[in-house]
Design a protein around this nucleic acid. Structure first.
Lengths: 174, 174
DNA sequence: GGTTACATGTAAGATGTTACATGATTAG
DNA sequence: CTAATCATGTAACATCTTACATGTAACC
């Protein structure tokens, strides 16, 4: 199987909001999206070219000032279809590059049925994960002595539990 | 500049704890380290070869059963030096693949001076980040209407704040 | 005897980063 | 006029994933 190419879906999601230049897209990773995903312009421009070939997006040109012509990209019907298919796929509980949060970012409607489904399945995943982590903590660091003997590892496990626990609480509040 | 090659340092850190086979190292990413970093055996075996060429590690062979000979890798003095240099470098506040946590995992001593320094500098980074996120929330979602209009984005920002806030609390407890 | 875990590798391709390159426009 | 930002690309390299490939050892 090929790799996920999640960047492609982020671009589709951003263009689904509105027409954007490669520069605009790159900037999005410095602010909002940057919270949970990263990409450089050198990755974005070639991908835009490829996505246009694949007919997920098109572009129109905009004259700026005297000489500069910028390309503003637009999502096609095919692109919209691909994007929605991705949104509806289940997301793994990965810690780095959280795909669930990525999808969530693109859900506009608070009452969406898809949102409800996504949250329920993510909540199950994260609750399981939390309980496994708690088991691990009890198993590996049952007493003060073991915690002190390998303090960094202990802290990291505590962090993972705190993170998952916060994640679960946050999910419950959605 | 070349890329970070953090995996190399994780391997050094694990071998610094004790001699391990490629298989053992790969397994570490299914449990402990897997909480915040990932790697497959197909990435590990070639890297071990390269690290041995670079004299950061060596290996000795262990006879298992009748036929199987496994390679157990050991860190060299040079490897230990490289590892400690990495530990002492400042860590960025990246969300995916958290390098700070990665380093922390390898700190054994709760009273280590390095730990103290690392935590202080990370706390500063994360506190700044949290306040930027809170500014963003106030700026982008000042009222209920704006929150409902773009619910996913709102949730994601709330998540980032909750995450950073939990991170800061956790750091303070170290 | 069969299944699961141990054990080690390579190959092809996808993805991501850093550096190289260039030039226009805007705000002060 | 000058600095920051806008704007678009390529090249080289590093990293990571998936699939291919093979065989042993331990447990039931």
């Amino acid at each position: 199987m090929a790799q996920k190419n999640r960047l492609q879906y982020i671009i589709l999601g951003l263009l689904n909001i509105g027409s954007k230049t490669g520069y605009d897209l790159a900037k999005a990773f410095d602010s909002d999206i940057g919270e949970f995903w990263s990409a450089n312009h050198s990755q974005i421009y070639p991908l835009l070219k490829k996505m246009e070939q694949d007919e997920m997006i098109t572009h129109h040109e905009i004259q700026v000032g005297q000489k500069l012509v910028k390309k503003s990209y637009d999502i096609t019907d095919q692109g919209k279809k691909n994007f929605h298919e991705w949104l509806e796929e289940p997301s793994e509980a990965d810690n780095s590059h959280d795909e669930f949060i990525l999808k969530l970012y693109f859900i506009k409607d608070a009452n969406s049925e898809l949102l409800e489904e996504m949250v329920v399945s993510q909540l199950e995943l994260r609750t399981d994960k939390l309980s496994h982590l708690q088991d691990q903590l009890a198993d590996k660091f049952p007493d003060q002595a073991s915690q002190q003997a390998n303090y960094g590892h202990y802290c990291v496990l505590k962090h993972a539990i705190q993170r998952e626990s916060g994640y679960v609480d946050w999910l419950k509040g959605i």
